[in-house]
């Protein structure tokens, strides 16, 4: 599937003169990994939220195979992974239940992401950020997912975990012909991971 953003514009209420995103164009064909860099406060996270359908653009549209991304019912083929994994899992549910809600978890992913069986019985507060981020990736990489948006997903993790996660994601993207948008402030990381880098400013 191809993800396209046309003339994408977004501003908060009453801030029409200072749009966060202004007439942005982007196309992510299958298998391409687009790196996105830019100084802080330029709306990188907002862009990801727009592309994943969390937010509705004020102008322009986000199309997935020609259909607006907000119109997909059920699990969306565009999934976003967030910078802080502890905010995106329900703190009162065991990981087992959170994963069940996302349609169960693939055995292959469990193995590749080094997720241990025993963690499924734990609550989010009993896992480290790196461990939780593995769950979030496993949840986002359900079979329907065709485009993955990664918003600084390893910025809060240590370098070893970062390298592990990207090694896995590269393999996964090649295997599934999955398009990706990679947001990071580390140029070295983007150069290692992406097929193309764009700058937001």
């Amino acid at each position: 599937m191809i993800l396209e953003a046309h003339n994408l514009t977004f501003y908060y209420r009453n801030r029409k003169k200072n749009p966060i995103i202004d007439s942005f164009e982007l196309t992510i064909p299958p298998g391409e990994r687009v790196g996105l860099k830019g100084p802080s406060g330029r709306g990188k996270t907002t862009l990801c939220r727009l592309l994943a359908g969390y937010e509705r653009p004020k102008q322009g549209q986000v199309l997935l195979d020609g259909k607006p991304v907000g119109e997909y019912r059920g699990a969306c083929p565009v999934q976003m992974v967030w910078q802080h994994p502890e905010t995106v899992v329900d703190p009162l549910l065991k990981l087992k239940e959170t994963m069940a809600e996302a349609g169960g978890i693939d055995k292959r992913l469990v193995e590749k992401l080094h997720i241990e069986r025993e963690w499924m019985e734990r609550y989010p507060s009993e896992l480290s950020g790196g461990e939780l981020q593995r769950f979030c990736l496993a949840r986002a990489l359900r079979p329907e997912t065709k485009i993955l948006l990664c918003d600084e997903i390893t910025a809060m993790l240590d370098l070893v975990t970062q390298a592990q996660i990207w090694e896995f994601l590269l393999e996964e993207s090649r295997r599934r012909e999955m398009g990706m948008l990679v947001v990071s402030h580390s140029e070295a990381l983007l150069e290692k991971v992406c097929t193309r880098i764009i700058t937001l400013d």
Binding site: R73, M80, V88, P91, A102
Partner: peptide, 19 residues
């Protein structure tokens, strides 16, 4: 955020409220 994410995972509004 965890509720927004659940929504994008295909969980319905009522289910979200309940769960």
């Amino acid at each position: 955020p965890y509720i927004l994410v659940a929504e994008r995972m295909g969980v319905s509004k009522l289910q979200n409220v309940r769960r």
